[in-house]
Simulated scan of single mutants.
Amino acid sequence: MTRVLVVEDDPPIGSELVQALVGGGYQVSLAATGGGALEQARQSEPDLVLLDLGLPDVDGVLVCRRLRAVLPQAVIVVLTARTQEFEVVVALDAGADDYLTKPFRLTELLARLRAHLRRQSPPRQERSVSVGRLSLDLLARRVLIAGDEVVLRPKEFDLLAVLACHAGEVVTREELMDQVWDVNWFGPTKTLDVHVFALRRKLGDYGEDPRRITTVRGRGYRYEADL
């Protein structure tokens, strides 16, 4: 049974989330503070974490970063009332895989969780792919740029792998959502744009030109084979 940790300090919201998840067949634990979340994460090793960013004891972004260190393979979805895009990017950089802005519908939340849990395999079965200075080992899920290993979050790796496997070709937004998230993805695709933004910045941090990932207006994105 999939284990879910809900981190929410508002009792009515926390109770509603727990009831919905238990009804969906998940094994659920609840924490109301950042400290409690980290303690439970170490004890129960959840497969998935729902993390409210507005916690009473520790900033939610810091909790997210610490949870990612404790749970490198878990799916972390942040729940936030913060609507500024840079705040969402900070949470994604801290290790979150996705976010939902409050208020949200429980049906959308449950659909997203199912989508994330289904996406646990590499987008292609080839062992490796190389484009210029970039090399990806798809089975080991490692990325190298000119021999230096790049640290990426799971969705960032999946996104880069799809683009690199189709280097020089346009990959539509729909195809990226299908392959990186899920064919039955429920909700807006803004999370794709945020992940592309974060991925470009990380490539730049390792000396790769962020323009390698080109936006093709009205279509999607292309990883440039030559630049």
Rank of each mutant, 00 (worst) to 15 (best):
M1K: 09
R3A: 10
R3D: 10
V4I: 12
D9Y: 01
S15H: 12
E16V: 12
A20S: 04
G24E: 02
A31G: 07
A32H: 10
T33E: 01
T33C: 02
L38W: 07
L38E: 12
E39H: 12
Q40P: 01
R42Y: 03
Q43C: 09
S44Q: 15
S44Y: 10
E45A: 15
D47E: 13
L48H: 08
D52W: 06
G54Y: 02
G54I: 00
L55N: 07
P56C: 00
P56S: 00
D57M: 00
D57C: 00
G60I: 05
G60T: 06
V61N: 08
V63Q: 07
V63A: 04
R65P: 02
R65H: 13
R66D: 15
R66M: 11
A69R: 15
A69P: 02
A69S: 14
L71T: 07
Q73G: 06
T80I: 00
A81C: 01
E85K: 10
F86D: 14
E87M: 11
E87Q: 15
E87D: 15
V89P: 01
V90E: 15
A91C: 10
A94W: 06
D98F: 12
D98N: 13
D98K: 06
Y99N: 02
L100V: 08
T101L: 11
T101D: 01
K102P: 04
P103I: 00
P103N: 00
F104L: 00
R105Y: 09
L106M: 15
L106G: 00
E108C: 02
R114Q: 15
R114D: 15
H116K: 07
R119C: 11
R119F: 06
S121W: 12
S121N: 09
P123H: 07
E126S: 13
R127M: 06
S128E: 15
V131N: 04
V131Y: 06
L134K: 02
S135M: 09
L138S: 05
L138K: 05
L139C: 05
A140P: 03
R141Q: 15
R141M: 11
R142W: 04
V150F: 05
V151S: 12
P154W: 06
L160P: 11
A164C: 08
A164D: 04
E169K: 09
V171D: 04
T172L: 01
R173C: 02
D182N: 14
N184R: 13
W185A: 03
F186M: 11
F186K: 11
T189R: 14
V194F: 14
V196C: 08
F197S: 11
A198I: 02
R201I: 01
L203V: 03
G207L: 07
P210K: 03
R211L: 13
R211P: 03
I213N: 10
T214M: 14
R217L: 13
G218R: 03
R222A: 09
A225N: 03
L227P: 12
L227V: 13
L227A: 14
